[in-house]
């Protein structure tokens, strides 16, 4: 019973799609243009809820931005032009993927810096370890080793 329930829950979770906030009356009739509008909306942050894209958010501002994106795309603007316009109004924060600039250099470069730092520390640490010299076997050990080896050779 419990297993069946878990199986059903898993199956439902697998077929579930994230709910989209786009209303049917907002959509463009031309599917190619609508797909472009969606792509633009996915790149843009809804500034009311902050961590949802304009395409996912139910906020009033996100609705207005979706309408604006579709108006501009229907008017013949490129995706880049639409994004540039909205960025000129709301700044870089509206882009879900921040551009590489001087003030975002630490954000983009940080992980690489940490890897370099770790590699440097590891290199210093291992270089400092003296190579471990293995002392030669004593006579007694040598005899026991030969006995074991001989033993193994004669089943």
């Amino acid at each position: 019973m419990r297993l069946a329930f878990a199986a059903i829950a898993t199956a439902l979770a697998l077929i579930a799609q994230p709910a989209r906030a786009v209303q049917p009356d907002e959509m463009l009739a031309n599917p190619a243009l609508e797909a472009r509008a969606e792509a633009v909306g996915r790149e843009l942050r809804c500034l009311v809820c902050r961590n949802q894209s304009v395409e996912d958010s139910d906020a009033g501002l996100a609705h207005d931005l979706r309408v604006l994106i579709r108006q501009r795309i229907a008017r013949g603007e490129t995706n880049t032009q639409v994004v540039a316009y909205i960025r000129s109004r709301y700044g870089d924060f509206v882009l879900l993927k921040p551009p590489f600039k001087l003030d975002t250099a630490l954000l983009w470069g940080g992980p690489f810096l940490l890897v370099l730092l770790g590699a440097g520390l590891a290199w210093r640490f291992y270089r400092r370890q003296p190579p471990v010299a293995t002392p030669p076997l004593s006579e007694d050990e040598q005899r026991r080793l030969s006995a074991l080896l001989d033993d193994g050779a004669q089943p």
Partner: peptide, 12 residues
């Protein structure tokens, strides 16, 4: 109705 607000960069 919201469109001029976008021109001004209003978000709240």
């Amino acid at each position: 109705s919201g469109q001029v607000g976008i021109d001004w960069g209003i978000y709240g």
